[in-house]
Computed example of a mutant assay.
Amino acid sequence: MNVDTLSYNYQMNVGKSQIYEVIHEEQQRYFQSNGFSNGEFQEGAEIPLTMPSKLGTTKIPAIMRLSKLTQDEIELITFYNKGEIIQRYVLDARSSSKTQVTYSERNFFHQARNQYSFIFLALLYKFFYNRGMKKRMVYLEKQCRKKEEGVA
């Protein structure tokens, strides 16, 4: 991974198809909650949104696009005035009941000084990022369990 990429790995005790289905449903729900109603949720789907800045002090207008949707990878690109963010889930089956999930966020900026600032701040931000990603992965794994039990 590059220095401009934040990444988190988590091994789930669920099958690859289960976690793919849950992530797909979560992303589809997110798109729908932001106004997506243009037919089937597939590659190329887009939504306008406002996202918080990394420090959470302001709201930034953006467009999010589902750029890749396969059993092995789900990729979203968020375009905004200073650059773009590529979010990616990579699913790697370790066995029929274990899946390595790698989530990454890569930030590209139009101006080099913003890129350098991000690289510096990412070193500090990484602790909070990891904590948040662990919570997200545990949540996704619990959603898989609920589906198995027929609760979801």
Score class of each variant (00 low, 15 high):
residue 55 L to R: 00
residue 61 P to D: 02
residue 137 M to T: 00
residue 31 F to Y: 10
residue 17 S to G: 15
residue 14 V to M: 08
residue 59 K to G: 03
residue 148 E to W: 08
residue 20 Y to E: 04
residue 75 E to A: 08
residue 37 S to T: 04
residue 72 D to W: 00
residue 150 G to F: 03
residue 131 R to E: 08
residue 48 P to N: 10
residue 40 E to H: 08
residue 60 I to L: 06
residue 50 T to F: 14
residue 84 E to T: 02
residue 26 E to D: 07
residue 51 M to K: 05
residue 114 N to Q: 15
residue 131 R to Y: 11
residue 121 L to W: 08
residue 84 E to F: 11
residue 93 A to Y: 06
residue 129 Y to H: 06
residue 125 Y to H: 10
residue 144 C to L: 08
residue 13 N to C: 13
residue 141 E to I: 03
residue 1 M to I: 08
residue 71 Q to M: 13
residue 114 N to C: 05
residue 35 G to P: 06
residue 54 K to E: 02
residue 51 M to C: 07
residue 13 N to M: 11
residue 104 S to D: 12
residue 39 G to I: 06
residue 80 Y to P: 01
residue 22 V to K: 02
residue 11 Q to T: 13
residue 45 A to H: 02
residue 150 G to K: 04
residue 15 G to C: 04
residue 88 R to G: 06
residue 90 V to K: 15
residue 124 L to F: 12
residue 95 S to T: 12
residue 73 E to H: 07
residue 99 T to G: 14
residue 96 S to R: 06
residue 37 S to A: 12
residue 133 M to T: 02
residue 144 C to N: 14
residue 126 K to S: 02
residue 20 Y to Q: 11
residue 138 V to E: 03
residue 109 F to W: 05
residue 106 R to Y: 03
residue 68 K to N: 11
residue 69 L to Q: 08
residue 30 Y to E: 01
residue 11 Q to N: 05
residue 93 A to E: 13
residue 119 I to M: 11
residue 23 I to G: 06
residue 16 K to W: 06
residue 89 Y to T: 13
residue 60 I to A: 03
residue 142 K to N: 13
residue 50 T to W: 03
residue 143 Q to F: 09
residue 131 R to T: 12
residue 28 Q to T: 11
residue 76 L to C: 14
residue 139 Y to Q: 05
residue 140 L to H: 01
residue 65 R to T: 00
residue 33 S to A: 15
residue 78 T to Y: 04
residue 84 E to D: 10
residue 1 M to R: 07
residue 68 K to H: 09
residue 11 Q to E: 09
residue 67 S to C: 04
residue 44 G to P: 00
residue 149 E to D: 08
residue 10 Y to T: 02
residue 35 G to N: 08
residue 20 Y to S: 10
residue 5 T to C: 07
residue 77 I to P: 03
residue 51 M to V: 13
residue 119 I to Y: 03
residue 59 K to W: 02
residue 100 Q to H: 09
residue 123 L to A: 10
residue 42 Q to Y: 06
residue 93 A to N: 06
residue 135 K to N: 01
residue 94 R to E: 12
residue 54 K to I: 07
residue 21 E to V: 10
residue 19 I to N: 04
residue 106 R to I: 03
residue 113 R to M: 11
residue 35 G to C: 07
residue 9 N to E: 07
residue 2 N to L: 12
residue 120 F to E: 06
residue 23 I to C: 02
residue 93 A to M: 14
residue 102 T to V: 05
residue 96 S to N: 15
residue 30 Y to M: 08
residue 50 T to P: 01
residue 146 K to V: 13
residue 108 F to I: 05
residue 48 P to Q: 15
residue 122 A to E: 04
residue 107 N to E: 03
residue 111 Q to C: 01
residue 145 R to T: 15
residue 6 L to G: 01
residue 143 Q to R: 13
residue 130 N to I: 11
residue 24 H to T: 14
residue 149 E to L: 15
residue 129 Y to N: 07
residue 87 Q to C: 12
residue 68 K to T: 10
residue 109 F to P: 00
residue 131 R to H: 11
residue 14 V to R: 00
residue 54 K to Q: 12
residue 66 L to K: 03
residue 122 A to P: 01
